[in-house]
Amino acid sequence: GFLSRRSHAAAAQSTPVEARGRPDRVIYHKGKSLIVLAVNLRGLMAEAKRADCIIEFAAQVGDFLAVDEPLFYLYGNAAAVDERRLREFVALGGERTMEQDPMFAFRIEADFALKALSPAINDPTTAVLAIDQLHRLLRLVGKRSLHDHEILDDAGHPRVVFRTPNWEDFVHISVREIRLAGASNLQVVRRLRAMIENLIQVLPEHRHAELHKELELLDRAISRHFTFSEDVALARIPDSQGLGGCVGGEVAELATRMQDLTTVHAGTIFAISSGPIWAADSGSSPGAIRGTAFPPAHKVMSCNYVRFSARCAAPPRRLSFRSGLRHTRVRTWTASRPAAYCAVA
């Protein structure tokens, strides 16, 4: 159908709307200021093919549309377009709905979390429950093929430009505001980490960059808001329950003996991983840990607590955790941003 994504060949031959210059005609919104609820894309496609032009919907579903704001930009044979018919293809109303507005579902859950984290309510457990739902929604969206803005006809020519949220938009609405509001709360930061790390494990690789960026921001927020090393250690553990669903006390105890790896020459390294660890590689001297499988000592919820000996003259600089066959996560330890927990035995 016409809603399928562009092929690489068609994309290479078409010209982006931004490069086409000024539109040949602009149709403005009339009447009352309302919210865009839905758009009849098949109707727009039929009209664009009939008039042999390109129709760009100026707004996005969920946008507030004020009087005299642009509604459509027309390129090409714009005079042949029936303005009345175009207006009939847009549904407007006073409140957002989820019919064609998936971002609204994310907005509702994010608002639940933000209200729960407000000083007046201060209910982080409810915020964790909202993050549970955002986690579920992100997994669904991350496995879908998000459409390009341009919709092509059967001949591969762009006919309709219709903007929809991209992957980055969904990640931002699910994480950014909640992190800012709950960065000082153990439940929130642990639940966010569990969500992000799980999404990195289960979603295709092209979704990972934005998730890694959010993980980095989460680590920086933890370093800023938590003073004691024990709290920092606890805050860096992924926990699908927020607090209480993962190894906590043992790691907090280990944190009292945390040291920079430049001072660790031999002993025991304790590592936290959100997935099964199949192999470890120190990237250090031949006498270091290399190519050895270390089964988890025990597993609680989605978190494994792993212990193995580092029999080497120099400290390992890097350990590679291979979770399953598809995903490899590399963690580097430094004094300022430990991604795992290290102690001298």
Rank of each mutant, 00 (worst) to 15 (best):
S309V: 10
R136P: 14
T126D: 03
D123T: 07
G245Q: 13
A209K: 11
A10M: 10
M98G: 11
L114K: 00
E56S: 10
E95Y: 07
C53P: 12
A113E: 02
F228P: 03
T227D: 11
A59T: 04
F228C: 08
A288V: 14
W333L: 12
D169W: 02
Q241W: 00
A59D: 06
S320F: 15
V17Y: 06
H206G: 10
S336P: 03
I178Y: 00
V160E: 08
N122P: 07
H265E: 12
A314I: 15
A297N: 04
G249L: 09
G324N: 06
P119G: 08
L217G: 00
W278C: 13
L199C: 03
Q100I: 03
I272A: 06
F228H: 06
R331Q: 13
V330Y: 15
V39R: 07
R329C: 14
V26Q: 04
V330S: 15
V67C: 01
L138M: 06
A9L: 08
V90P: 09
F112T: 11
Q100L: 07
T164S: 06
A127M: 02
C303E: 13
A127V: 07
A288R: 09
S240T: 09
T334A: 09
R224Q: 02
T263K: 10
T328S: 14
G242P: 03
A221L: 01
W333K: 08
F294R: 10
S118P: 05
H206R: 13
D123I: 10
V171P: 02
E214H: 09
I35C: 11
S14F: 14
S336I: 14
V81L: 11
G244T: 04
L140H: 02
S118A: 08
F308Y: 12
L37G: 08
S284H: 13
I277N: 09
L325I: 11
D24H: 10
P158N: 05
A78P: 10
P165S: 06
V247C: 06
G94C: 09
L44Y: 03
A345E: 14
P204Q: 02
F228N: 08
T262G: 11
L74M: 10
A221V: 01
E250N: 04
L180N: 00
R136W: 04
